[in-house]
Computed example of a mutant assay.
Amino acid sequence: MKKLIILMLLVCAAGFVRGQILTPVHWSYAAKRLNDKEAVIFIKATMDKGWHVYSQTLQKGGPVKTTITFEPSKKFQLNGKTEEPAPVTKFEKVFNMEISYFADEVIFQQKIKLKTNGPVTVKGNIHYMTCNDEKCLPPDDAAFTVRVN
């Protein structure tokens, strides 16, 4: 009987801990073929109210910047750098520097040159950090796969 009670308590505790994991950033992905030779990959982050992610262009000494990497492929090549809209920029005392970030949502765009006429699968990873006015969560990663038809 004691083992059953202990097991039930452990199961309840595990559910409680799992329910406490914060995931304030929600990622989605899409692609648009521009013509036979080019496409754009869209990477969208939607943040819960009060949370933000950081720009790709932060200087060292601040929070973790957003870094988007793409797996190499023989079917496409990157065309330029991953673009982002104009971020909110303000001086943060805690870092003693200007910090650029996105709140609510942001769409990153990466142009690619297609080396084939058929469908192409683009895979990659996003390394990012999210914060609100009270705390920052540890840096996280989000793997992605998007198909260009």
Rank of each mutant, 00 (worst) to 15 (best):
L4M: 13
L4W: 14
L4G: 09
L4P: 03
I5R: 13
I5F: 12
I6H: 07
L7V: 09
L7I: 13
M8E: 02
L9R: 02
L9E: 05
L10K: 00
L10H: 01
L10R: 01
L10S: 04
L10F: 14
A13Y: 06
A13K: 05
A14W: 04
F16Y: 09
R18N: 14
Q20I: 09
I21K: 15
I21G: 00
L22Y: 06
L22I: 05
V25S: 04
H26L: 02
W27F: 07
S28A: 08
Y29K: 11
Y29W: 14
Y29M: 00
A30Y: 01
L34M: 14
N35M: 01
N35G: 12
D36Q: 12
E38A: 02
A39L: 04
A39V: 01
A39G: 01
I41T: 00
F42S: 12
A45D: 04
M47K: 15
M47Q: 10
M47H: 14
M47C: 14
D48H: 14
K49Q: 15
G50E: 01
H52P: 07
Y54A: 00
S55R: 06
G61I: 10
G62C: 11
G62Q: 08
G62Y: 06
G62M: 04
P63A: 04
T69M: 07
T69C: 02
F70K: 03
E71R: 13
S73K: 10
S73A: 05
S73G: 08
K74H: 09
K74N: 13
K74T: 13
K74P: 12
K75I: 05
K75F: 11
K75R: 14
Q77W: 02
N79H: 13
N79T: 08
N79I: 08
K81S: 07
K81T: 14
K81W: 13
T82D: 03
E83I: 05
E84H: 06
A86W: 08
A86I: 12
P87Q: 02
P87N: 00
T89L: 00
K90A: 10
E92C: 06
E92G: 01
E92D: 12
K93V: 07
M97L: 12
E98P: 09
I99R: 02
S100R: 13
S100Q: 08
Y101F: 15
F102H: 01
D104Y: 03
E105L: 07
V106G: 08
V106F: 02
V106A: 04
V106L: 01
F108C: 10
F108R: 09
Q109T: 15
Q110F: 00
K111M: 03
K111E: 12
K111S: 07
L114P: 03
K115W: 12
T116G: 07
N117Y: 15
V120I: 14
V120C: 05
T121M: 10
V122C: 06
V122K: 01
K123N: 13
K123L: 01
N125D: 10
H127P: 07
Y128F: 11
M129T: 08
T130Y: 11
T130M: 15
D133L: 11
K135W: 10
K135Q: 15
C136V: 06
C136T: 09
P139F: 05
P139D: 05
P139A: 07
A142C: 15
A143K: 11
T145N: 11
T145E: 09
T145D: 06
T145G: 06
V146S: 03
V146A: 04
V146M: 00
R147V: 10
R147F: 10
V148S: 00
